[in-house]
Design a protein around this nucleic acid. Structure first.
Length: 116
DNA sequence: AAGCTGACAGCAG
DNA sequence: CCTGCTGCCAGCT
């Protein structure tokens, strides 16, 4: 209970919310975009608390640097994350995105001086 | 107040 | 290529 969204958390949610359909980003890429290159863990921590904020953000579009669905266990169902991603045309094998380089969406490259 | 935890990432061996 | 250690910062106990 209490404060569920800090300035940093809100920043993370803003970026994650901008991830387009059929694309994914990484904790490190988001952290780097926010200016905290080593704050990847904080992005993951923000994701952990994302279920407390509205509107619900596409947390399933955030994976680790190798395209592994490291946060799948935190979803309502252990296969929900993969299900959502596959529903967006993303191919997954053994909890890892196959066409990761193709669907990777880097906020530092897409939102550079173009954030509303 | 002090220590532990965590949906990560980079470097060394 | 894989395994292990370290850094990072906010939240929780």
């Amino acid at each position: 209970m209490g404060k569920v969204n800090t300035s940093f958390f809100q920043k993370v949610y803003e970026v994650v919310y901008q991830i387009p359909f059929g694309r994914v980003s990484t904790y490190g890429a988001i952290a780097h975009f926010l200016g905290t290159s080593r704050g990847a863990r904080m992005v993951g921590w923000a994701m952990n608390a994302s279920h407390n904020i509205t509107p619900q953000i596409p947390a399933h579009r955030v994976v680790n640097r190798v395209g592994l669905l490291s946060g799948k266990a935190q979803f309502s169902s252990p296969n929900l994350m993969q299900q959502l991603l596959e529903n967006e045309g993303i191919k997954i094998k053994d909890d890892k995105i196959l066409n990761f380089k193709q669907v990777f969406w880097d906020p530092s490259n897409e939102l550079k001086a173009h954030n509303g």
